[in-house]
């Protein structure tokens, strides 16, 4: 298990606005993710965490540096090679309703990836959709429904099932539980941990809620203004935080527990 799956080496990305001003969204970011582990990235709006995710998936081309998946370069690819990367890295975003066409039945959406990559035939798709729904604790009958007929929590389960269906090596979860109610969030976090164990998945979990990110990761990278300012073990995050910015993030959490304990 102790193999390196993903490696980022000095990755940078600069955007230019229409007036020609440069904004460096990601600055010389380097880190490694071991197979079967989950790494968290925390930071506030505009810190570059989502851009970083898009660089890893190849949705946004990078300016400098290198990204390796199992030792192979996955940046600067195009065509067939790029499509193979999409198969190995899947993403789950914050709003499931924007991830699926409003007129596409849930079952079709679920098996789209499998059919596209030729992993199953169209004939098998119906049965496979039902199996995938059960994998994420949903009723197989939901397969015929349209997205608006499902709750946000149910649909996020569907999106997660689709991401995992094609056996990706890495799953990037970008604020995947941020729009959900706390009780639903808890269920989705539990689901993610169960799936990770069952399918030996590797997660990159991006979020702004330190407590949530910490709950399902082993290591946390704190990002600010495009750069990683601190790497911390998730378990001892509070104790080990040294950087002012990390401490600031920690102190901004409104804890309920401190009111419960006398």
């Amino acid at each position: 298990m102790n193999q390196e799956l993903l490696k980022l080496d000095q990755v940078s990305k600069t955007f230019r606005n229409d007036k020609g001003h440069a904004i460096q969204a990601v600055k010389e970011v380097s880190f490694r993710v071991m197979r079967g582990h989950s790494i968290g990235i925390v930071g506030e709006s505009g810190c570059g965490k989502s851009t970083l995710a898009r660089l890893i998936t190849g949705l946004t081309p990078l300016d400098a540096g290198e990204i390796l998946l199992e030792g192979n370069r996955i940046c600067g690819l195009s065509g067939k090679a790029q499509r193979q990367v999409y198969r190995q890295i899947q993403m789950v975003f914050q709003d499931p309703y924007s991830a699926i066409s409003p007129r596409m039945p849930v079952g079709t959406f679920l098996t789209e990836g499998l059919v596209h990559f030729g992993m199953i035939s169209r004939k098998e798709a119906g049965k496979e959709a039902e199996r995938l729904l059960q994998m994420v604790d949903l009723e197989p009958q939901l397969s015929q429904r349209l997205p608006h007929q499902l709750s946000g929590g149910q649909l996020q389960r569907v999106v997660i099932a689709r991401a995992i269906s094609i056996h990706p090596k890495l799953v990037i979860l970008d604020e995947a539980t941020s729009a959900l109610d706390v009780s639903v969030q808890e269920q989705i976090l539990e689901l993610l941990v169960r799936l990770q164990k069952e399918y030996a998945l590797t997660y990159l979990f991006i979020g702004h809620d330190l407590a949530v990110v910490r709950s399902i990761t082993e290591e946390i990278l704190v990002m600010k203004n495009g750069a990683i300012v601190e790497k911390l073990p998730a378990k001892t995050l509070v104790r080990d935080a040294r950087e002012d910015y990390t401490k600031q993030l920690l102190s901004a959490v409104f804890s309920v527990r401190e009111f419960q304990e006398p």
């Binding site: 989950s38 706390v182 009780s183 969030q185 808890e186 976090l189 539990e190 993610l192 941990v193 809620d209 330190l210 407590a211 949530v212 910490r214 709950s215 399902i216 990761t217 082993e218 998730a234 378990k235 995050l237 509070v238 920690l250 959490v253 804890s255 309920v256 527990r257 009111f259 419960q260």
Partner: peptide
């Protein structure tokens, strides 16, 4: 917060993920 009477309030409170919780990973 300290002495919720309703089961629903209790479930809401217990669903909150806190910084010193046991991690889901380890449960």
């Amino acid at each position: 917060i300290r002495h919720p009477q309703e089961a629903y309030t209790k479930s809401l409170l217990s669903a909150i993920v806190e910084l010193d919780d046991e991690q889901f990973l380890c449960r």
